[in-house]
């Protein structure tokens, strides 16, 4: 299963080893991990709670991976996204991509993250000593995703 939603933490080495699976076609492995920062506005963050829309989440992430596979010459891709209550420095998300050459792996990894940020149904709620608030979407994330609509795929 190339897409997983889970409360549990993940181990980068274990996940990338499974993704590569000893496949000698793979010459490049790119990975991105998103982690929880310790500041929410001006107050120290206590917890970050991740909510999602079961069913649609898996569907949208699978669609994003499929787009990446059609645009770049990659061997495989993996997305793990955690949900539930997280604390500062915890891991949130892992994207891993394997390919023959680094250009495709780097580009596809960045593309999957940019599309995940704007299309996958996750929401963050920050809790500080002052209370809880839902995180607002950022225009810079939309701009990062939009740039893939005009850029030709690299290495293809």
């Amino acid at each position: 299963m190339p897409v997983r939603i889970q409360e549990a933490d993940f181990d980068l080495t274990t996940e990338l080893a499974a993704l590569r699976a000893g496949d000698p076609r793979v010459g490049a492995v790119a990975a991105f991990i998103g982690t929880v920062r310790d500041v929410a506005g001006n107050a120290p963050l206590a917890t970050m709670t991740l909510e999602h829309y079961p069913g649609m989440t898996e569907r949208s992430l699978t669609a994003i991976v499929d787009i990446a596979k059609s645009r770049w010459d990659i061997v495989d891709a993996l997305v793990i996204h955690r949900v539930g209550a997280l604390r500062p420095a915890d891991q949130i998300v892992l994207v891993g991509v394997t390919s023959a050459h680094r250009g495709d792996a780097f580009a596809a990894c960045e593309f999957i993250m940019d599309y995940l940020k704007t299309r996958a149904p996750f929401w963050k709620k920050e809790t500080t000593a002052e209370g809880s608030r839902w995180v607002e979407a950022r225009a810079s994330d939309d701009e990062a995703a939009a740039r893939w609509q005009s850029e030709p795929p690299r290495g293809a």
Binding site: H81, I92, K117, A120, W123
Partner: peptide
């Protein structure tokens, strides 16, 4: 039909 605010995952 689901209604939700702009997404903020990742």
């Amino acid at each position: 039909v689901a209604l939700f605010p702009p997404v903020t995952g990742g």
